[in-house]
């Protein structure tokens, strides 16, 4: 009965789909052979992706969890089950807590700076000035820069003997800073480099978003005689909040996963000041061969990222102005 309705009345079917209610779930199977065929199609269309995800995402997730409860021998094989001992030793190790702290400082600094500077660039580039497109091109330029190129550029700038900053300090009779060998400065250097590298992408997206804000809103504000700054906070920001949300998630998550710049610029040093979570996993697994412990660190990293992604999805979703 239902079969006929759905087949004859596409409108009806359309509605049902809109409600995201799969037909099968309602228990009113309209056409068994079609349902079967659709399942087959689903399998064909989803199969390749599912296979890749199962092999390279789901299986390793459980495997990592499994390994985190073991000691591994010098060939990386789990040999002794130790329960939560890896977790306990990590969370009571000052070095690991130090890494956690450093990672949070890094992530917060990078995210805040990237978002603020990205917005500043986008807002400045939205002005109508002659030759503005030239500036827009420059602002988006760092998007084409990969980690290793960025690291080389900045290593040169921070170099203690030939670097720009050192010479500049010399010129101004300021004490030279050992950028990459003093904990606080090393972190600063890495943050600056990361933010610089992020800016191109962030700018481009913010700029696109600001451009798509209807100009009528600004015109109205202009007539009211509202200041530019007020316009920015009360028109631009709310209007681009979905984009802001998207960019903040991406930036946050990407910063948690930072590895390349650390590897090239500081190798986690000095005094573990820039030994971020992913670098520590690499060190413990692929330098020291301590795969059990590194798996535990991986689980903690995954939990942190999952937590932040989830929170951002859930909380910001409600506030975003669509």
């Amino acid at each position: 009965m239902d079969t006929q309705i759905t087949n004859k009345n596409p409108q009806m079917r359309y509605k049902q789909r809109k409600e995201e209610k799969p037909l099968m779930a309602t228990g009113l199977s309209y056409n068994k052979s079609k349902a079967l065929r659709d399942r087959l199609y689903a399998l064909i269309f989803l199969g390749p992706s599912l296979l890749v995800l199962i092999v390279f995402v789901f299986f390793p997730m459980f495997r990592t969890l499994y390994l985190s409860f073991f000691l591994t021998n010098n060939l990386g094989k789990p040999t002794v089950f130790i329960g939560f001992a890896n977790y306990i030793s990590l969370l009571s190790s000052s070095a690991y807590l130090h890494s956690l702290q450093a990672t949070f400082i890094y992530v917060i600094a990078v995210s805040c700076l990237t978002l603020t500077l990205g917005l500043l660039l986008a807002q400045t580039a939205s002005q109508k000035v002659r030759g503005i497109s030239f500036f827009r091109t420059i602002f988006s330029g760092t998007m084409g820069v990969s980690v290793s190129v960025a690291a080389i550029f900045w290593l040169f700038i921070f170099n203690p003997s030939v670097g720009m900053l050192d010479q500049l300090a010399n010129l101004l009779h300021l004490p030279a800073i050992n950028w990459l060998t003093q904990p606080g400065w090393a972190m600063t250097a890495v943050v600056i480099s990361t933010v610089w590298m992020n800016l191109g992408f962030t700018f481009l997206i913010f700029f696109g978003a600001i451009q798509s804000v209807p100009s009528t809103l600004y015109e109205a504000a202009q007539i009211e005689g509202v200041s530019k700054i007020y316009q920015f906070f009360h028109i631009t920001l709310p209007m681009i909040s979905p984009t802001l949300f998207f960019v903040s998630i991406i930036t946050l998550i990407e910063s948690f996963k930072s590895f390349g710049l650390i590897d090239l610029m500081t190798a986690g040093g000095p005094d573990n000041a820039t030994n971020l979570l992913v670098y520590r996993i690499y060190q413990d697994a692929f330098l020291s061969g301590n795969y059990g412990l590194a798996s535990t660190e991986s689980v903690i990293l995954a939990l942190i990222i999952a937590f932040f992604t989830f929170i951002q999805f859930k909380v910001l979703e409600k506030r975003v102005n669509y």
Binding site: V278, A302, I305
Partner: peptide, 9 residues
């Protein structure tokens, strides 16, 4: 939500 970096091993 699952970073590839956490699953390299």
């Amino acid at each position: 939500m699952l970073p590839f970096e956490a699953e390299v091993i």
